[in-house]
Design a protein around this nucleic acid. Structure first.
Lengths: 235, 235
DNA sequence: AGGCTGCTGCCATTATCCGGCAGTGGCGGA
DNA sequence: TCCGCCACTGCCGGATAATGGCAGCAGCCT
């Protein structure tokens, strides 16, 4: 692989990682010595790329580099099409349409060969068992998450017990058969998940919840890990 | 100026000129011999650039090499991220990486607000039951499909019976737990599906199969519908 | 304090690049 | 029809840059 080719690859590799990556890892992935990698990084920086390197951490590419990425390789087109097909088949109507529409938008900027690739893509998602329909509009849940606003839920749990509560929704998890809305429950003062097909009513409130979504997600993950650790301790 | 640096410059130079530019001019502007310029053009083309050169006219960079800025409504971003996450979690390594890489490419040409949207996306795919690992490289199967080439398969069916056959692969179907390679089987003279985790060996042959992929897919769908109709008749 | 990591200098080997030259073929204008 | 322009390719010898290894220094985090 020639050097110039490598530089493009390296750039794309850096784009993929949001968190710092050590030079050693990058060097191995590209198949080059560490010394050469340092030289390559320097070369990219000389071209105007804002790559930050911190000792003890690794490299991060700050967005805003003037040179846009190269066109998608065929494998990436396949991946995008497959993913969108999954969404189109397994998500609710609005999101399914959005997936196809996004694909069309991407198709519009592809050169003809790749567009043909996209249209003739041979990776299919098999239709799975039917997903229990939601009685509420899933788009509303996503909107609440996106705008970080509170939600009043009428819910009935696995035992059939109904309740009404205010939650701060911050994530939606897609399982094979079920979708879970995850949020901070004001009623319980803790994180809770709600099967979307058991939500009887959902009301989007005006009030934004007093936390950032990303932060809630992080705290939730920590809480989950702590819970698992506790289980392990119990064994 | 090093070569790789020059290639970046050449790219920018071509981006600026919308009308054909002769090689002589480009060579002078970069400060390099004509012979070298031709080599540089070839190098860029080797990386996928669609640079068109016409005798008597000059060079033009056709769109489709660099990814132009893209714009999506938030819902479409969510759909793309969700789809890519599914691929990243449920497909084989190569394809999973391709999904993330494609996402990174898109992110690089997004306006900042949308980029933030993408990074903070709150739709997750729950990890499902572990998928039986393939003993062969799934990327090879996709390559065969993409290039419409024959494949020699060593296969053992549900009963454990081993066989070896030549197939014309044209599709890959993703089920929750299983992936099926679908193709025309020369041995049986009919369409057949193969669980990828039961393929012991796969050899990509030189020969292309004498049919178009799209056409095979169409014929296969018809055959499937016919089979289902027959079943219905039998009821 | 110690481990991880970024970063730089030096050097011999090696691979690549470069320019020049000659030749082919497509194109359009004289 | 001829001629000039231009893209493109193959070849070659000399120039140049890239590469990897080693050694060493400096931040950062635990």
């Amino acid at each position: 692989m020639s050097r110039s080719e490598r530089l493009f690859d390296l750039l794309q590799l850096l784009r993929r990682h949001r968190h710092p990556v050590s030079g050693r890892v990058l060097a191995d992935e590209i198949g080059v010595s560490l010394r050469t990698l340092y030289r390559d990084i320097a070369a990219l920086q000389a071209q105007g790329a804002t790559i930050e390197g911190e000792a003890g951490a690794g490299y991060v590419l700050r967005p805003g580099f003037l040179l846009p990425p190269l066109m998608f390789p065929p494998e990436e087109i396949e991946a995008l099409v497959l993913g969108s097909r999954w969404v189109a088949g397994r998500a609710d109507g609005r999101l399914a349409e959005a997936a196809l529409s996004a694909l069309a938008r991407i198709g519009a900027v592809l050169p003809v060969e790749l567009r043909a690739e996209m249209e003739a893509s041979a990776l299919f998602v098999a239709p799975g068992a039917p997903i229990p329909a939601d009685s509420i509009d899933p788009a509303l849940l996503r909107k609440a998450i996106r705008t970080e606003r509170k939600l009043t839920l009428a819910y009935r749990d696995a035992g059939g017990v109904a309740s009404e509560r205010v939650v701060w929704p911050f994530a939606l998890a897609f399982f094979d058969q079920v979708r879970l809305l995850i949020g901070w429950c004001e009623l319980r003062g803790d994180f809770r998940s709600f099967r979307t097909d058991r939500i009887a009513k959902a009301l989007l409130m005006e009030a934004r919840y007093p936390a950032r979504r990303a932060e809630l997600i992080q705290r939730w993950k920590q809480a989950k890990h702590a819970a698992e650790a506790q289980k392990l301790d119990a064994c």
